[in-house]
Structures are given as structure tokens and as C-alpha cells.
């Protein structure tokens, strides 16, 4: 089995809920200053309150901001993706060992908090909102992008001192979920219009390339196609005109 031992792989391949203060640069540099795109169509949130959704949207659009060619996390539907994940089995702690006693471990021992992902978000979002209001005197969404980034860096480094949980545990979860939402199959609500796949050039789940392997350097740019899109197409084709 092949690990991805690039730094990014080490940071993100653990899935989510990285409670670990991971090594590597904690400062983000050269963020652009584009404001967060406002949410397009009204969304019926399944997990977030409207306030929480607004805060999450503002945060994730700094993590993956829009640029001239490719939209950012909000345009890609990342808040909707996270909302769906938290409302579902993953959010309620599926595939998480939840028996106690809970104790603070070493970074090498991984996530040891008693929170499910849903509980982690619920708890953290309210802490983040209060902390931003206390420190900056306004809502996160209203801050200048530079200050938004500064606040996110404080969450990332753990400097934002929450008593209930380490802020970096929440930040790493949010970051991992944002990347997932930007690059997962669009049937989960993110990667809208396959923007993430188009950005990197990933052709999606329909795949078969053995005849192309030895065409080295091939400029291959087939537009991607998603799972649900395909399933829908299949279902649609199941309605032929029948005559007995």
C-alpha cells in the first residue's frame, strides 16, 4: 500500500478531526483579499442554524477563496457539504470509538476528545462566534478579510484559548472538511459544477485508461462526470417506450 507522505498527505490523510497540533508552517501567507461571495440560493440547512451557516460560509471561503477562474468554497457548495456530513452518520460519530475514559493524549495518539463531529462543530461555532466578538468587536462575517485570516490563524495555532476544547482541533476538522467538500463527488453537495475537479484536471469516477498509459505526456482534458449525475442518467434511460 502506498502512503502519501507529502506534507499535505501527512496533514490531511488522517481523515478529519485531527486533534493534533501538526507540524509545519502555521502561518498562511499571501491570502488574497477578495471578500467572501454571498450565498447564492437560499439553503434549507439540515444541521446548521442560519447564524452558524453564515459563520461557516465566511470561514471556509477564506480557506479556499474564489479567484478569477475558479470559485471558492462557498461557490463550490462546501457549507452545504459540511452541513450534510454533520447531519448524517459521520456527524453523529459513526466509525468513531466512543468509549471512555477520555484522557488527553499525545499528538501521536490522535483524536481523544469526547465530541462527535456534530458536537465538535456545535460547541466550537458558538465559541468561535463569542471569541471573535470579544476580540474584534464584531461578527466574523463582518471582519475585513485580513482580520478574518488573522482570526483563522489564531484558531489554527490554538492561540484562541477555548476552555472546552482546543481551537486547533476544530480548525483542522474544518480545514479537512473544506478540502473534502471542494474535491469530493458533487453528489455530496460540494464540488459544485465539479469546480474542484476541473481546477486540478481530475476526470472523475468514470475511469479506464489502460490504453493511454504508454502515451507519455498526453494532454488529457476530458470534462469530469459525477456519480449522481451518472445515476440519474441511468434512471432516466430506464423509461423507454414499451409496447407489449
Amino acid at each position: 500500500m502506498t502512503p502519501d507522505l507529502s506534507r499535505r498527505g501527512l496533514l490531511l490523510s488522517s481523515g478529519s478531526l485531527a486533534a493534533v497540533p501538526l507540524t509545519g508552517p502555521t502561518e498562511a501567507q499571501s491570502h488574497d483579499t477578495m471578500p467572501a461571495t454571498p450565498m447564492a440560493a437560499p439553503t434549507l440547512w439540515r444541521f446548521f442554524t442560519a447564524d452558524q451557516a453564515s459563520l461557516v460560509a465566511a470561514m471556509v471561503d477564506r480557506l479556499i477563496p474564489p479567484d478569477a477562474e475558479f470559485t471558492g468554497a462557498v461557490g463550490a457548495g462546501v457549507p452545504q457539504f459540511i452541513d450534510g456530513q454533520l447531519a448524517g452518520a459521520w456527524g453523529s460519530g459513526a466509525r468513531l470509538y466512543r468509549l471512555g475514559p477520555f484522557a488527553e493524549g499525545t499528538p501521536e495518539q490522535g483524536y481523544q476528545l469526547p465530541y462527535t463531529p456534530a458536537e465538535l462543530y456545535r460547541t466550537s461555532l458558538s465559541l468561535v462566534a463569542d471569541w471573535v466578538r470579544g476580540g474584534y468587536g464584531s461578527r466574523f462575517e463582518e471582519l475585513d478579510p485580513r482580520l478574518q485570516d488573522e482570526a483563522l490563524r489564531s484558531l489554527e495555532s490554538g492561540e484562541a484559548g477555548f476552555s472546552e476544547l482546543p481551537s486547533d482541533a476544530f480548525f483542522e476538522t474544518l480545514l479537512a472538511n473544506t478540502v473534502e467538500g471542494f474535491l469530493s463527488d458533487p453528489m455530496y453537495g460540494g464540488n459544485r459544477d465539479m469546480v474542484g475537479w476541473r481546477m486540478v484536471g481530475f476526470p472523475g469516477p468514470y475511469a479506464g485508461y489502460v490504453n493511454l498509459l504508454d502515451r507519455h505526456g498526453l494532454n488529457f482534458n476530458r470534462p469530469p462526470r459525477g456519480i449522481a449525475e451518472a445515476l440519474r442518467e441511468h434512471a432516466q434511460h430506464h423509461a423507454p417506450t414499451l409496447q407489449r
Binding site: G77, P186, M187, Y188, G189, R192, D193, M194, G226, I227, A228, E229, A230, L231, R232, Q236, H237, P240
Partner: peptide, 15 residues
């Protein structure tokens, strides 16, 4: 043979 050949529709296809 029965699959309708419609022009591909862009869509996100959210489940």
C-alpha cells in the same frame, strides 16, 4: 438501443 441520446445536461446531480 433504447437509451435516449439526449445532449448532455450540465448538472450537479446532488443525491
Amino acid at each position: 438501443a433504447s437509451v435516449r441520446t439526449v445532449p448532455r445536461q450540465a448538472g450537479t446531480g446532488v443525491l
